[in-house]
Every structure is written in structure tokens, then in C-alpha cells.
């Protein structure tokens, strides 16, 4: 419960900030959608697994949005989001059938490999995907409203905020449900799971599908707010960033991924201005420091202190 309250405070803070400082509106929406994707990574981390390729679902949803928007001009933004999520969920369900058999290093690297294939394919088929230049998405109507850039972003911010509230609520329920607890058992004792008659693979598959739809949601929002999708969104570096956010925020509560994303986005924004050349270095060093000093991330720390 405390966690949900913390999430609400965080989201209210973000929305208020976005209204007071309009130039931060876009970064805040981007950060929040990053948080959704990182939450997807956190779901897998509960099972002790790390994927190094989940940006592919972000990318896939973003490209789906771009394609559909191009094919059906005039389609509503909300419909685009739903389509993006649906497509990445279906992709996750199919890829999941294959990767749910693998654990740890194999799991992480297989996801990486699949995402590299997607990245390469998008880059290669220039005439369909626009290659490395990506695809533009002209601003659609949203929930029936034809809006200017600012109004559109406000509506998108509200949609994102509401989605996060719903998603954190459902994910927390999931973590406490039998399926969620089975998922955590994969981390500690898969053999035992099989010996009480539970298919660890199926349990993990469900977690994988959930994670891919969260990443899809993030990607769809991302595409709309940026108005541009590029293959970079699915590059391994992006997947690495998602893992980073998830570790930074910690998996003790779904709130962690959101606050982790906020911290990350603003760190990035200022690092990008002050020292572009050292960005990866900062990222890498911070990652090492977090794992050393605060293995539970922000939410783990807050939970220890009984704040959430």
C-alpha cells in the first residue's frame, strides 16, 4: 500500500513539474515510459533472469505504431498504443515459447541475439523501414481530440500517468498472486517447482509475456511523444539501459522501476549536456557502484527503511 502511495506521490510530482516547467514535459513522458519498460525487466528479474534484448519489444511496438499510423492516416493515438502493445505482446508470446526454456546467461544472450537480428533487419530493409533514418509519425488525434503539440503532450502525459498507476497496481497484485510467487520461485528452486507439479517454463513464459507487453506499452508511448522511430530504440545499448534502470530502481516494488527511470533520464539529460563523451562511462561506473553499495536499488533501500 505504501508503495502505491509512493507511486502516486511520484507521479503527481512529475505531472506538476511538467506543468510548471513545460520544457520538461517531453523528458518526463519519456522517463515515465522508460519506467514502464524497466518494469518489464523487473518482472523477469524477480525470476532471477536478466534479458539483454528487451529493447526489441520497445522498438517493435514503436515501429508497429509508425507503420499503422502510416497505413491508416487519421487513426486515433490511443488505438495506436493498443495496437503497439498487442503486437509486442504477441511477439513476446511467440519468442517466449522459445526463450522460456533458457536461464541466466543463455536467456540473457539469446534475447540479445534476437534483438540484434531485429535491429539488423530494420536497418537493412531501408525502403520499408527508412533504415537508420527511421520513420516519422505525424501527430494523430488522441481519444478523439485533434490537438496542437502542447495539448497532445498533456493528454499523453495524463494517459501515461494513468497507465503507470494501473500497471503498478496490477503488477503488485501479480507479484502477490500464485503465478507471481511461482515466478519468484524460479530464481531459487526450479527443480522443486517441477516436483510440485508446476511447469517452470510455463510460469516463466507468462512472466516473459507480461514483460514484453510492458516494453511494448513503453515503445508505443515513446513513438507518439517523439513522433519519430529509429532502429536505435532496439539497439543493445537501449536494452542495457533498461537493465540499468531496473537495477537502479530495484525490484522490491514496481515503484522502483519508475523512480529509477526518472533518476536515469535526468542523469542522462544533464550528463548529455555537460559531458556527452563520457556518458557510457558514467553509466557503467554508476552501475558498478549500485551493485556494490545498494544491490537492492532505490526501492530495496526504501523498503529496508520501511518507507514503502
Amino acid at each position: 500500500m505504501k508503495g502505491i502511495i509512493a507511486t502516486i506521490i511520484l507521479l503527481t510530482g512529475s505531472v506538476v513539474t511538467a506543468f510548471l516547467l513545460p520544457h520538461l514535459k517531453t523528458p518526463i513522458i519519456l522517463a515515465l515510459s522508460y519506467g514502464l519498460a524497466a518494469l518489464g525487466i523487473s518482472v523477469l528479474m524477480r525470476a532471477g533472469q536478466v534479458s539483454f534484448g528487451h529493447a526489441m519489444y520497445v522498438c517493435l511496438a514503436a515501429y508497429s505504431v509508425a507503420f499503422i499510423a502510416k497505413a491508416y492516416p487519421g487513426i486515433d493515438g490511443l488505438v495506436l498504443i493498443v495496437c503497439g502493445v498487442a503486437i509486442s505482446t504477441i511477439a513476446g508470446a511467440i519468442i517466449g515459447i522459445f526463450v522460456s526454456k533458457y536461464r541466466e546467461i543463455f536467456f540473457g544472450m539469446l534475447n540479445l541475439a534476437i534483438s540484434m537480428v531485429l535491429f539488423a533487419v530494420i536497418g537493412k530493409y531501408y525502403n520499408i523501414t527508412g533504415g537508420s533514418d527511421g520513420m516519422m509519425i505525424s501527430r494523430p488525434s488522441f481519444i478523439g481530440f485533434e490537438l496542437e503539440r502542447d495539448g497532445f503532450e498533456t493528454l499523453l502525459l495524463i494517459t501515461t500517468t494513468v497507465s503507470i498507476l494501473l500497471v503498478t497496481y496490477f503488477i503488485e497484485r501479480f507479484f502477490n498472486s500464485p503465478a507471481g510467487k511461482f515466478l519468484c520461485a524460479i530464481k531459487t528452486n526450479e527443480t522443486r517447482l517441477e516436483y510440485i507439479g508446476v511447469s517452470a517454463r510455463f510460469v516463466f513464459w507468462k512472466g516473459y509475456v507480461i514483460s514484453s507487453s510492458l516494453c511494448g506499452l513503453a515503445g508505443a508511448i515513446f513513438a507518439l511523444v517523439q513522433g519519430l522511430v529509429t532502429p536505435e530504440m532496439g539497439y543493445w545499448l537501449k536494452s542495457g539501459e533498461l537493465v540499468f534502470i531496473s537495477l537502479l530502481g530495484g525490484v522490491a516494488h514496481s515503484f522502483g522501476a519508475i523512480i529509477g527511470a526518472m533518476a536515469f533520464e535526468f542523469l542522462k539529460m544533464y550528463a548529455a549536456i555537460l559531458m556527452t563523451d563520457y556518458w557510457h562511462m558514467i553509466l557503467g561506473s554508476t552501475l558498478i557502484l549500485i551493485i556494490y553499495f545498494a544491490p537492492g536499488g532505490i526501492s530495496g533501500w526504501l523498503k529496508n527503511k520501511k518507507y514503502i
Binding site: G48, G240, V243, Y278, M281, G284, I288
Partner: peptide, 20 residues
């Protein structure tokens, strides 16, 4: 730490080396 976290450490080191 578990192997997967050690892997992430090498990944972090990899990112540092990219900039280097």
C-alpha cells in the same frame, strides 16, 4: 554475487571501455 550480476559488472566495464 550471482553469476548474472557479475555478468552485468563486465557489461558495465564494457560500457566504460566503449568511451575509453
Amino acid at each position: 554475487k550471482p553469476p548474472i550480476l557479475q555478468l552485468i559488472i563486465t557489461f558495465a566495464f564494457f560500457m566504460i571501455l566503449e568511451d575509453v
